[in-house]
Design a protein around this nucleic acid. Structure first.
Lengths: 141, 141
DNA sequence: CTGACTGCAAACCCTTTGCACTAAA
DNA sequence: TTTAGTGCAAAGGGTTTGCAGTCAG
């Protein structure tokens, strides 16, 4: 069994919550997806096999997964909240193609370090950051 | 008269639009504010002197100011669109205090250059980017 | 059993639109 | 006069909440 399920059941137990069929199913589906899904997309995927699961339950479960650290919320400013896998994934930034909507995940230690320094210069204690670069990907140029 | 008004009237003329009392008032109020205001905040400021101006007009005017390049829209992911002065202001990033909500504007040429390089490595043509660092400012540490 | 969870519908909240009236040009 | 703009109210669209019935522990 994937480590993610252990983390989730542990989280559930600690909080005195319940490990329901719906939550198990939604987590399974989420783990099967690519990195970025909206609640709506995930809901449609879940419904393929479990028609009785409601949208609201998907939404609430994703919030729960966020709390448990298994998923991260991303907001590209288009009004739609997306979720990405977070367990055993290091922090990364995004290149977002404005034409095809494709996301590329990137990591640059040097940039991260410069950000730290910049924050220090302003006596600012950073807890998290978000770097998004919008433009055209190689296929859309 | 401030250069911003010339830009706006020029923009208005070119587009075949009209320079109304409301638009003049909203632009004036916007220019008098600090850097970041939501439509709601701006609406309240405008109403102090012009009670008959509606919220929707403020909203529509801000969109117009965005089009004219006088203001930029910022979205910190809290569901509220804010507007910042853009004329004669270079691009900058934000340090956002999660406790007091204060914004610090920062510029770092080195980071910008590294971002360019990173985009190039992925054959990505960047058009704009957004870097936001969340944390605690010096007063809130 | 019992209290957390579900699913529905309805509420929320910011943003956007429709429309009759108003006012720039 | 003509046509864009205004202000109200109402609609949109994603997210959140209330609640009666359901089910995991």
């Amino acid at each position: 069994m994937k480590r993610e399920f252990e983390i989730f059941t542990e989280f559930i137990k600690t909080k005195g919550l319940r490990y329901t069929t719906q939550r198990r199913r939604i987590l399974t589906t989420f783990l099967e997806t690519e990195r970025h899904v909206s609640a709506e997309e995930l809901y449609k995927l879940v419904r393929k096999t479990h028609r009785q699961i409601g949208f609201v339950t998907v939404y609430r479960t994703m919030k729960l997964l966020s709390d448990s650290g298994l998923c991260g919320e991303i907001d590209f400013g288009d009004g739609i909240l997306r979720f990405e896998h977070k367990y055993a994934h290091q922090h990364h930034d995004h290149l977002i193609c404005v034409r095809c909507g494709r996301f590329i995940e990137v990591i640059d230690r040097e940039i991260e370090q410069l950000q730290e320094k910049m924050a220090q210069r302003h006596k600012f204690k950073p807890t998290k950051h978000k770097l998004e670069i919008f433009g055209l990907c190689d296929k859309c140029c």
